[in-house]
């Protein structure tokens, strides 16, 4: 279904703003794809066509880019995208068990959506939170140190309309709303940036260990070799 005229007009206004950020218009393609995904929750043919029109590209050119990246969805997706990290470290720490449990509990497979349209399940690659493994992402917010049991609770809460608070991040918004932030429009919700508060335990582990060990004050150190780590090479110093 083509966009309603007023939707199209609004999207065109947003698109202009996105394109204006870049020295060359085509750089706006990724955020534009996020923008149309924010409208429909996936990349429809209309969305692809809209991006092509804005940049003077063919639909084929836009599709070639869109299909390269995993965050663009080619089928309608749920309100909550649940990504279970099953890259090696998370998999071993429990990600495999979590993913298996969720597939069974929800009765869906990788990249499928529950019938109520609430949850799309996916196994994802490393999401740069290995020190909080095993990690589950909901709409690209962190849920840290998840267990199979807590993952079931998590998706049950999502389906019941009680989205839980991420371990580090703002309260959950829908997949469409998140796509708008990815397009470069700030989260307008009051307090969203500050939500989630200070860094998590793992992020602070080194700082705390340094303080406990009386590591001194490297920032204000004036000692020339204070933190030098040169060691005699093997055979030299014994």
């Amino acid at each position: 279904m083509p966009y309603d005229p007023e939707v199209r007009e609004r999207l065109e206004r947003d698109a202009k703003q996105i394109i204006a950020r870049y020295p060359q218009p085509r750089s706006a393609l990724q955020p534009l794809l996020h923008l149309v995904q924010a409208e429909e929750g996936y990349l429809s043919q209309d969305g692809i066509g809209f991006c092509a029109d804005q940049l003077g590209l063919t639909r084929a050119e836009v599709t070639a880019v869109a299909t390269f990246y995993t965050m663009y969805k080619r089928r309608p997706s749920g309100a909550y995208h649940v990504g279970v990290c099953t890259n090696t470290l998370c998999a071993i720490m429990g990600g495999d068990a979590i993913f298996a449990q969720l597939k069974e509990h929800l009765g869906i497979e990788h990249e499928e959506t529950t019938e109520d349209g609430a949850v799309t399940l996916e196994h994802i690659e490393c999401n740069a939170a290995c020190d909080y493994a095993p990690v589950v992402m909901v709409n690209w917010e962190f849920f840290d140190q998840v267990t199979p049991q807590s993952s079931v609770q998590l998706v049950d809460d999502l389906r019941a309309g009680n989205p839980p608070t991420p371990s580090r991040g703002a309260s959950l918004c829908t997949f469409k709303e998140v796509s708008r932030i990815l397009a470069g429009f700030p989260d307008e919700r009051f307090g969203a940036v500050d939500a989630g508060g200070p860094a998590g335990e793992a992020t602070l582990a080194g700082l705390r260990a340094a303080r406990e060990s009386g590591a001194g004050d490297p920032w204000n150190s004036t000692e020339p070799d204070a933190y030098r780590m040169d060691r005699p090479t093997e055979g030299e110093g014994g």
Binding site: G83, W140, F142, P166, R168, A170, I181, L182, V193, G196
Partner: peptide
């Protein structure tokens, strides 16, 4: 893109 809270804080 898969770290939306980082994006919020960077944008801010």
């Amino acid at each position: 893109g898969e770290v939306v809270h980082v994006l919020r804080r960077l944008q801010r």
